[in-house]
Design a binder for these strands. Structure first.
Lengths: 132, 132
DNA sequence: TATAAGCTTAAAGTTAACTTTAAGGTCAAT
DNA sequence: ATTGACCTTAAAGTTAACTTTAAGCTTATA
């Protein structure tokens, strides 16, 4: 199949598929006589793996580092993957903590705003008074 | 004080302060005879408000929209601020949900990986079989 | 006096993951 | 024969929030 069909099957835009190829995330496909890219099932599976990894929060660069370098996303290094997954878990936990704190900060801020407190609430007064 | 002192007091880099000025987030300061920027306490307070808003998760553009347009971050619109805070709360809740789901997905994925399941786990088989 | 720290500007570079544009070749159908 | 859908490439544009660079003044210190 050509890039258009792969695009509609994968749910990605054709130019995104070319972009992945240019980044080395996707194997360079065969070409038809006129130069069109010709794909098979494996390409769809590769794209699907990329989309899966993205859902788990990995960047395209993360994916490159676990791939065998052949762009197939087939020969992935199990240990590297587990390592990446653990790192991502830690990142996610940190983000969850930050977001929860942020949420509480916003709630607190709203309360102060509704009580019509001084708008200078963000600045520690002693910081300001260090000045002349 | 000059930009260097404002930078060290605020914890921001001098070029970041100039950048904020260029974006209209910070009032244009007076200049000394030689052209240097001269700041007072208010500038520090403005920077502090910017940093506060950033901690709450707002973008520089968000801040512009609640400012009176004078770059002081003084005459903020209370209603607009409350509206922004509520919008941000909703965003944060959505992000928290996404991240929790992502975390569970990663945990599930790890389990499958450790059980040495087929690496094709990401792709629905019927999706692949639509192909020739 | 020299050198180093601090200030000025405008413009370009950074990162990620694409998207858009330009300029054109191919192919099926009308 | 021409319209329209689909394909090609390379390069530039997008967004956010800066950072870096270049080229050149000013001021304090040794």
């Amino acid at each position: 199949m050509r890039i258009g069909q792969l695009a509609s099957l994968s749910g990605l835009a054709a130019h995104t598929i070319r972009f992945y190829e240019s980044k080395g995330l996707l194997n360079k496909p065969k070409r038809s006589i006129n130069g069109y890219r010709i794909y098979d099932k494996d390409a769809l599976q590769s794209l699907s793996r990329i989309q899966c990894a993205q859902r788990l929060g990995f960047s395209l660069e993360d994916m490159l580092s676990v791939m065998a370098g052949d762009g197939t996303a087939q020969g992935m290094d199990h240990d590297k993957m587990l390592e990446q997954l653990d790192m991502r878990l830690i990142e996610v936990d940190i983000l969850l903590g930050q977001l929860s704190r942020q949420k509480q900060d916003i709630i607190d801020f709203k309360v102060r705003l509704q009580k019509n407190w001084d708008q200078g609430q963000c600045l520690q007064v002693d910081e300001i008074n260090q000045l002349n």
